[in-house]
Amino acid sequence: MAHQDTEKKLVTFRVKRYNPEGGERTRFSQEYKVEVMKGQSVLDCLNEIRWKQDGSLTFRRSCKSGICGSCAMTINGVNRLACETQALALGSSTITVEPLKGFAVIKDLAVDIDPMVEKLLAVKPYLITKTPPPSDAERLQSPEERARLDGLYECILCGACTSSCPSFWADEQYLGPHAFLKAYRFIADSRDEAPGEHFDALDDKHGLWRCHTIFNCVEACPKSLNPTKAIEALRRELVKEKIG
């Protein structure tokens, strides 16, 4: 049986490429064949292509552990982290790899995530306090208060959710699920003393109301978080604040 585990399978990677330097081929698909072992991730395969077949293939990666969020890309039509996606588990002999949709491509699979970061900053993604901290301790939370942040704080800002969202495809100024999830992470925090400041950017025509509960963000999140749940909670908070 050990023989089966080391068996390799030939898989074709069809990579959507973009060469900003132009020339004859600016936007094109390129196919690479890789002998894939069980357990090998798509990122492993891309590394192998880059190291052994084509050094010009460009993509972001860093931790290879599903925590830095660099290698989010569209694999077989769904946004995922390349490092957390086992190539053979996809069950296809041809795997398509594309850059995250909705963002400007810099080169090949590397996209410009600056707009995503700007929208994140718009919701003030940090604890806002008005009173000085206790002189001898941290700002304390009860276990229950801390538990409210579960499912919110784990976001690694990979962009898989926002790039999968049809509302974002239709409106590039739409804040996006990543910003909403992060906003709620602080609004739900018992230590935050100015939730209104996080809300400022949310109640906007490019804000909360443009979510159509399509759930692509939930499907895409590599951390199994639920931005839709956060968006709905934020909407209820906002309605309560406006009409009591």
């Binding site: 077989n76 039509g77 949709k101 495809w169 509960t213 399509i214 759930f215 692509n216 499907e219």
Partner: peptide, 15 residues
């Protein structure tokens, strides 16, 4: 923008 080629999940179909 041009329709994005992306998998149609159940939630997308419902929408």
């Amino acid at each position: 923008r041009a329709l994005q080629r992306y998998r149609i999940h159940l939630g997308t179909a419902a929408w």
